[in-house]
């Protein structure tokens, strides 16, 4: 259960948004909408506890995420614009390192299976700089398949993906929601998923 109460974000002397309220129960997802520069990414970074809100509070199962600290971080996965994919490493190395950071045990076979599921079979050992933009995104999104996180915070997850990958990611999100997960995402596309809430900034 993720609840936001009266959230505000200030950049410089400009208030990006204020008075944001929402509450997400297990199985629900939030579609954050807004124009470019409306503060979608800022909201997601606040939700991911990367930056503190100018006002308001976020609670995870009734407790403030500031108090929870590492316990909260262990339950969320945040995929931003850049994606933390190293160009010099192969998708497999990137995925294995991400798993180390997340402190989830992941063996080579599992990682290879996850990458194959994202259509990167045969490219696991190729440095990421030789991959296309869409393949890079796929290498990044493969983390969703291996990490057992309850809360997914995804910033524009559908950018640069082809039709097949979009369908695959939608299916993955749907399965996550069916298992009682919570998803917060920004996207300029409409999402045909059940139990969605929309938030316009």
């Amino acid at each position: 259960m993720l609840t936001a109460h009266d959230l505000a974000c200030v950049r410089g002397d400009r208030t990006l948004f204020s008075g944001i309220e929402f509450s997400l129960a297990p199985g629900e997802w939030l579609h954050v909408q807004g124009e470019n520069g409306a503060g979608k990414t800022s909201l997601l970074r606040i939700l991911a506890s990367l930056s503190p809100p100018a006002a308001g509070e976020i609670r995870w199962h009734g407790r403030s995420i500031r108090e929870l600290g590492a316990d909260y971080r262990a339950q969320l996965i945040f995929l931003g614009h850049h994606g933390a994919v190293k160009e010099e490493f192969s998708p497999l190395e990137n995925l294995l390192f991400a798993a180390h950071l997340d402190e989830v045990p992941l063996c080579r076979q599992e990682a290879q299976a996850a990458l194959a599921a994202f259509g990167l079979r045969g490219r696991e050992d190729l440095p990421v700089r030789f991959l296309s933009a869409g393949q890079k995104r796929r290498a990044l999104l493969a983390r969703l398949a291996v990490r057992r996180a309850c809360l997914w915070i995804l910033d524009e997850p559908f950018t640069a993906l082809d039709v097949k990958a979009v369908a695959m990611l939608s299916a993955l999100i749907e399965r996550h929601l069916a298992q009682g997960g919570i998803v917060v995402l920004t996207s300029h596309q409409s999402m045909p998923l059940p139990k969605g809430k929309a938030l316009s900034l």
Binding site: A70, H82, K86, A98
Partner: peptide
Amino acid sequence: HADGTLEQMALSPSP
């Protein structure tokens, strides 16, 4: 910092 790895490190359950 540029490729977001630092963000993921800050979000890691490890200190």
